[in-house]
Design a binder for these strands. Structure first.
Length: 402
RNA sequence: GGUGAGUUACUCAAGCGGCCAAAGAGGGCAGACUGUAAAUCUGCUGGUUUUUACCUUCGAAGGUUCGAAUCCUUCACUCACCA
């Protein structure tokens, strides 16, 4: 497998927030080219039930990129550290998951992650494997390698310390243990989010302290913005695209991103080369290509990755049919209801309106359609029969009134 | 431990006895316009077929009052300053 180092480095650097020890990465690539010797790329994940969205896949795709250039991915599931809880978050102490649950979650990780990663070049590892063995003595030894003052350099510790918010001792252990993972795994490179900087550097420090003969390079990826273009992608903000979502949903969500955000997504999510993306940009700039078409390509690429090419094409056709020809989607939810039924109630029963009050408002605004006909009578009763109900442009339901 | 300030709808934030389902902003939903969006303009944004009405909601529980988000008491939590 041959590749151009400069080109490879450009792709590796693409979209990254920060790289520490870039020369090391270049050396590893060069060495691989010359001797065929692989190197390891570590990334850690929570042991909780994975429900990945595109924000997570930014990092995973970067891992996949390294696999093209001789990297062996160490996909670390933090089943031990998981019970401490990363202090970056809300500082809740979590329960240790039992073996069975961890295994189950790991399996589900594999299903989602191997759509991007090459399983042949991936080792799935659990940090309880070595951390369980570390024991009290080993743990104490680990703590002697670091002092409190340096620990407090970490931004959020610093803030919490100064504002006298509680910091549990166990939280100090988190970075140490995560760093120790790098010692145990002898990782050459570690990937993580920008919020993980302190922990990632800890791995580097500890590798030196423990004389592993390695000092991992660190590559940090930014947090991907969600569909609103402002906040980070997250499920709770409902601005995410989940990797297990339906093709039609994915397509609609990608298309609903703004033009500006689309380019950000290209940079971080597309496997197209930098040059290809530049071409697309200039074609849009000169008007020879419509931004919508570019967005459609991206949507299809993402759907192909998690579903199939066929699904992508279907999703596109479906989207055009609904939005261009304003026809009705091909498969909509069906509800059997008893009539006669007040229209406002029917919308609630068909789950396309949260309350009858909301239904009334929507009807007043002309947002409600029955069989494609706009209605204005909020007292309307549905008699026996089949109806296609619609609220706004997106919410459809078929009801059978009996 | 002491003193002071605060807790209002999805979020921030006004209100300080009746005109309060509660200003304003953001977010969200919808309509127009589009390329599907974004931007812009407009409307809506607790619930209930009594819809110029009724019911529930202003940290929790009691109380005063014809009437409380607003006053009083207790409790819980958050924050600031002091120790």
């Amino acid at each position: 497998m041959l590749f151009d180092i400069k080109e490879a480095m450009r792709e590796i650097k693409r979209g990254t927030a920060e790289i520490i020890d870039e020369e090391r990465i270049e050396k590893l690539l060069k060495n691989f080219l010359e001797t065929g010797e692989n190197y390891t790329v570590k990334a850690g994940f929570d042991p909780t039930a994975p429900d990945l969205h595109l924000g997570h896949t930014v990092l995973i795709q970067k891992l996949a990129l390294f696999q093209q250039y001789g990297g062996i991915v160490q996909f670390l599931i933090g089943d031990f550290t998981g019970m401490i809880g990363d202090p970056t978050g809300k500082n809740e102490t979590r329960k240790k998951l039992d073996r069975e649950t961890v295994e189950k979650n790991a399996q589900s990780y594999k299903e989602q992650v191997f759509k991007i990663l090459d399983p042949k070049k991936t080792e799935v590892v659990f940090n309880s494997t070595w951390l369980d063995k570390l024991g009290a003595a080993g743990l104490v030894e680990l703590t002697t390698t670091f002092n409190v003052a340096r620990m407090l350099e970490r931004d959020d510790f610093d803030k919490r310390y100064k504002s006298q918010t509680a910091i549990s001792i166990s939280e100090f252990l988190y970075p140490l243990l995560q760093g120790y993972d790098s010692v145990a795994l002898k990782s050459d490179i570690e990937l993580g989010g920008t919020d993980q900087k302190f922990n990632l550097l800890m791995g580097r420090t500890l590798q030196r302290t423990y004389n592993t003969g390695k000092e991992q390079a660190v590559l940090m990826m930014p947090l991907l913005e969600g569909l609103d273009g402002v906040n980070k992608m997250s499920k709770s903000l409902n601005n995410y695209i989940g990797v297990t979502e339906e093709p039609n949903t994915m397509f609609g969500k990608v298309l609903s991103a703004s033009d500006e955000l689309m380019w950000r997504y290209y940079d971080l999510l597309s496997t197209r080369s930098i040059a290809e993306i530049e071409d697309l940009k200039s074609e849009v700039a000169t008007g020879s290509m419509h931004p919508k078409a570019v967005k459609e390509h991206l949507a299809c690429e993402i759907i192909e990755r998690f579903h199939s090419q066929e699904d992508a094409l279907k999703a596109k056709e479906e989207f055009d049919r609904v939005h261009k020809q304003s026809e009705i989607p091909s498969d909509i939810k069906e509800y059997a209801l008893e009539g006669p039924l007040w229209i406002a109630k029917a919308l609630v029963d068909a789950k396309i309106s949260p309350s009858t009050s909301q239904s009334r408002r929507d009807i007043k605004q002309g947002a409600v359609k029955i069989n494609q006909e706009k209605i204005s009578d909020e007292q309307l009763q549905l008699q026996t029969g089949e109806y296609i109900l619609q609220v706004g442009k997106r919410k459809f339901a078929k009801v059978k009134v009996s």
